[in-house]
Design a protein around this nucleic acid. Structure first.
Lengths: 337, 337
DNA sequence: AGTTATTACTAAACCTATTTAGCATTGCTA
DNA sequence: TAGCAATGCTAAATAGGTTTAGTAATAACT
């Protein structure tokens, strides 16, 4: 293993000071009045021997790591995995690396992860915040770290965020079901105080109220296993045989809903129409295909990274936080009666 | 923003040397004959003020980062996302963090990523290697870094690796189709020189040859888009109307195969039986459900991280590399005629 | 000619830890 | 009571960069 070159080695080889090398490599040659001839000589030599500054040492001194901490709810969930993937690509294009982790919507785990990220001196944070994390995020903001939230936001914490128009999305989807003659429309969601879930519920309720229809909401514990969710849904079918359409609060519930209808031997959409929040290959390929509310994944990732880059490149710490709300698309796949 | 405490602050507050503090915090108090009384006083104070050593400075000095570099082919692919998730959890339990990235099977991108990981002083590597990366991985090994490959391996590079028994898996799946009366069984795969793809092809061929059946192999370019793969498969159906069963080389091809059969109006499994490599919720929920070769995801992640931890904790640099081959499971879902 | 400005660099401090080498003090032996 | 070991701790070097505060040499100005 050949020893790695340090800036001192470079300086010694060229018989100049390491200060000079540092200035040149950091593009401060003009400002520091280093002669063009020397600049060229150094650049040439550095390239020749393939010297790369030790980024740890650099980070230690400058306090900047060029690393972004990404905390998603669950990287094995298709929605988050795809967004993480895009964020990763875009971050790399901007010269940043990503350290990521899954929060599991677990407050304590998230607190520990934030502590670890701080410890690792990440420059900025992208987070899908779980409940109860307000204080920790507030601390980050107070300490001057750029924080961008997505998928949901924290009403009392002044951050940038990127979300979709959840309320309109479920309102629109519910309205679509109503327009197609459905009357007993249920909404199955997680019992959650997170903004996205609350807004989705409100959209459903708004549409139902407008049409003077009775709402039917089932809230499922977030930590329930897929199997127990399916069981719950089977019980639901028994309890409410009159329900002729279900709107699901997210993709995982939609998936469980499909499993349940299949187990119950119900036909989709003849016996029961289904709409899932968040599109999914499964919904497209299912027979017959399932209508879904599709989130603009690329746009979300784009906006998140752009917001963060703006903050990271900003010289002044501007106060105005940006709140971006993107539209979803209702992808109609069955004719839903 | 309250200034972060450094070890000097701790030392000054207690009127002792930072050396002593360092020894105590690193559990070397006994060895260094620090009195128990002082050890307690320091530990108490550190806890009280919540001092955490700066890990950058620590890494700079020790050369250890407690970070693992994880390079998967594509984090948005379900198989890799799930494994990444598990590896992440297990690494955290062992006190390690993960930096991950997707290679896209792109050699140059992977080279750059490895360079970046080296730069960041990661302690060990977990990689699904693309073609042509042999030399870079060899360099890592030569320089003493632990490297664990999974999903595939590099025949001429002496690393630890964790793979599944690809050859037997496709042999067994093909045999299953033959036993169910299929005669015109096609294998649709990627044109790839990677070990896992080669072995899957061999397993198929072995079974076909044993039964004296004619093979029918289609190799698709890895970088083809999903849409063009579907088109190719539709052409395939036209060209080979006699084919009554298809084995797909991986989950993505299986997915595209489903789309194609649906577009072509073929019934599964009446008109054509399908088996996919790699199970998938989609295959389970599809109507009728699709038979699949299921990989033991948890076991793969477990073995990968255990291998790496062994290497990281090893005092001597043992030469014997470990090669772990895990069994897959054929999950029969249709009766396949 | 003496002062000031400009040019082209550099020595030393700094970031925050770990690690090596060593220094007082006390106790014990010869 | 000189010599040596053991005890309990620390100063200084080190990791590899960036940044501050200069310095020496020449040029320009009065």
């Amino acid at each position: 293993m050949k020893k790695k070159l340090s800036i001192v080695d470079i300086a010694n080889s060229l018989n100049i000071s390491k200060t000079t090398v540092s200035f040149i490599l950091n593009g401060r040659a003009q400002e520091k009045r280093i002669s063009e001839e020397l600049v060229k000589r150094v650049q040439q030599y550095v390239k020749e021997v393939g010297y790369k500054p030790n980024s740890l040492a650099k980070s230690l001194r400058t306090g900047k790591s060029h690393i972004i901490g990404l905390l998603v709810q669950d990287i094995s969930n298709h929605f988050f995995a795809t967004i993480a993937r895009q964020i990763e690509d875009l971050a790399y294009k901007n010269g940043y690396k990503i350290i990521y982790s899954s929060t599991d919507n677990d407050t304590q785990k998230t607190q520990e992860l934030i502590a670890m990220f701080r410890d690792r001196h990440v420059d900025g944070y992208i987070i899908t915040p779980p409940d109860g994390i307000e204080e920790d995020i507030n601390d980050l903001i107070k300490d001057g770290f750029p924080v961008v939230l997505f998928d949901r936001y924290l009403p009392n914490v002044p951050t940038d965020y990127v979300v979709v128009d959840n309320l309109f999305s479920t309102y629109n989807a519910t309205q679509y079901l109503i327009d197609n003659g459905h009357k007993n429309i249920a909404f199955i969601t997680y019992s959650s105080i997170q903004t996205q879930m609350i807004e989705r519920l409100e959209g459903y309720e708004k549409a139902m109220h407008q049409s003077k229809l009775k709402t039917n909401v089932t809230e499922i514990d977030f930590y329930a296993s897929a199997d127990s969710i399916v069981s719950l849904m089977l019980e639901f079918f028994e309890k409410y045989p009159e329900v002729d359409a279900i709107l699901f609060g997210n993709n995982h519930l939609g998936k469980c809903g499909l499993k349940a209808t299949r187990k119950a031997g119900k036909r989709v959409p003849e016996d029961i129409a289904l709409i899932a929040f968040d599109d999914y290959e499964l919904f497209e390929l299912y027979t017959p295909a399932v209508t879904a509310i599709s989130q603009p994944i690329s746009e979300i990732a784009d906006n998140v990274i752009n917001l963060l880059m703006e903050r990271l490149n900003a010289t002044t710490e501007e106060q105005k936080k940006q709140h971006i709300t993107l539209a979803t698309e209702l992808i109609v796949r069955d004719s839903s009666k």
